[in-house]
Amino acid sequence: MTTKKMFLRPCTWVYLFLLSLTFVTWFIGVNNLSGRAFAFTVLGFALIKGQLIGDYFMGLKQVAGPWRWVIFVWLLLIGSLITAAFWKTL
């Protein structure tokens, strides 16, 4: 691999980003913040986290073809279903 010297590896950046999204989610949780804005922010964060885990941790970013999209499709699917179920109740 042709590695430039980096301050942090890409996966470490991703890791730190995942941690920060988690803290935001937790903050919304402990303060019992409710309603569409908060709920879907939190859900959006979860989907982003999932995609990052798929791309960078599971290494799907390096894959071409249908397998590239397995995690994405799964996230899209449950993301939409959860949204559909929560939408009217919030």
Partner: peptide, 26 residues
């Protein structure tokens, strides 16, 4: 190693959804 790693990331991934869905979203 990659096989075990992929499975473990899946376990992590699933929790990323479970946590907001069950503990936070309201």
């Amino acid at each position: 190693v990659e096989t075990g790693a992929s499975y473990w990331h899946m376990v992590d991934l699933v929790w990323m959804i479970l946590f907001p869905l069950v503990y936070v979203m309201r």
